[in-house]
């Protein structure tokens, strides 16, 4: 099922960059599905009270979008051996119909044994790096 062959991948191979839109309604739906009802993800009042610029996306929503870059590339989500991110800046989601945009990219940065590679992931929103030190270890065909 994994469509990417280890032999075809080199250090420096880039995954196709993707742009994902994030709206308030996405956060409401994600809150319900994940069970994370922290009000900073739906209430501007609470978000500002704790010093945030406004409602921010769940970090896990951003991580899920970045993960999709990997799973869409590799074909089989079960090929991911390890996946870790650091949330380095908040994704502020305005209360309008447009929301904001996440731009996600990835580069193969290491080839390991056992057909595994390390993909380093980048994610930007409104010019800020919202993920740092983010990598996935993926087992290829």
């Amino acid at each position: 099922m994994t469509t990417v062959r280890y032999a075809d991948v080199e250090v420096g191979t880039e995954l196709p960059e993707q742009t994902y839109r994030v709206r308030r309604s996405d956060l409401v739906r994600y809150a319900g599905a994940s069970g994370d009802f922290n009000p900073i993800h739906w209430s501007d009042r609470v978000a500002r009270e704790v010093g945030l610029p406004g409602v921010i996306a769940h970090g896990m929503f951003t991580m899920a979008q970045a993960g999709r870059l990997i799973t869409d590339w590799v074909g089989d989500p079960g090929a991911i051996v390890e996946y870790g991110v650091r949330f380095s800046a908040p994704v502020v989601v305005p209360d309008d119909d447009k929301g904001t945009e996440l731009v996600v990219g990835g580069t193969v940065t290491k080839k390991l044994d056992d057909n595994q590679v390390v993909v380093t992931i980048t994610a930007r929103c409104a010019g800020a790096k919202v993920l740092a030190r983010s990598t996935a270890v993926v087992r290829l065909a």
Binding site: I40, G78, E82, G84, V85, F87, P90
Partner: peptide, 17 residues
């Protein structure tokens, strides 16, 4: 204080999905 909590890091290590 949950309202002051933000997610810092997250990592998963999988044996399978």
């Amino acid at each position: 204080d949950f309202s002051r909590v933000v997610h810092g890091d997250q990592r998963f290590r999988y044996s399978r999905p």
